[in-house]
Amino acid sequence: MAKKIENEKWQELFQKQSSKMNEKTDPLQPDLIDNYYFIYDCVENEIAFVNNAFQTITGYDNKTFNLDQLIKIIHPDDLDYFFKCEEKDLEITNQLMFNQHFQFLFSYTYRIVKANGEVITIQQKCQAIEVTTQGHLSKTLVTHQIVDDYKVRPANDHKIFDKTRGIYIDSDNCYNLSNREFEILTLIKAGMNSAEISDKLNISKYTIDTHRKNILNKTNASSFLELIHRLSFAEF
């Protein structure tokens, strides 16, 4: 039974929804459902919600679905790949703060085993939907899209899409910095100014200043003090 609210205009709009108007006449079409989603709570380390399409596609009960079951239904040959991709994603999300989390969409494919024993391939897409007041990731929306006629996993299967710039980026370099920009960023972190970097690299100070501006633009940072505080330089 749908909940009735006091506002008459909203109630009128609710009654006009196709799902409401046709709820008694619409035929069931489970074969047309090709994806499901769930919400992962990163703080509590649990699946907070699973939509009904999960049960329609996999045959498992969406009300009892949890992380242990997710791992159990992954094809044994794809489990190591699953963990490697999750580890890559974690290395990047651990560097991000506040709205930066909403900038990226992470995706890769693997196989799962349905309740009836059938093996299907899904593409997993994950994006942030909530961060803590400290700026750390707290909830993600995870979508599983069925991939038909899937045969061989391509080399670039693991992808990170930058929604702000509308481009796919290198999973080992979430800000898509060039080698020169990496080099300059490392020297800035070491405490060198533009003139000192210019002398060390034997390129003009003007070029160094241009690279500095590009680095700040790519990382959406207002200053290098902010950027250095934000980033882990372990990979540099």
Rank of each mutant, 00 (worst) to 15 (best):
K189E: 00
S204P: 03
S198T: 14
L185I: 04
G191Q: 10
K213Y: 06
K213W: 02
I188E: 00
R212P: 02
S198A: 15
M192S: 06
I188P: 00
N202C: 03
G191V: 09
N202A: 04
L187V: 10
I197R: 06
I188R: 04
K205E: 12
D199F: 13
K205M: 11
T210C: 01
L187N: 07
S194P: 06
I197Y: 12
M192Q: 05
A195I: 12
L187W: 05
I208K: 02
E183R: 04
M192Y: 03
K213L: 08
T186S: 14
H211A: 15
E196F: 06
E196H: 09
I208T: 07
I203K: 10
I203D: 03
A195E: 09
S194H: 13
N202L: 04
E196W: 09
I197T: 13
N193W: 07
Y206H: 08
D199C: 12
A190T: 00
L201E: 13
E196M: 12
R212N: 08
I208Q: 07
I197V: 11
D199W: 10
T210W: 05
T210E: 06
L201S: 11
R212Q: 10
K213F: 02
N193R: 10
L185Q: 03
S204I: 06
A195M: 08
K189R: 10
G191T: 06
R212D: 02
K205C: 07
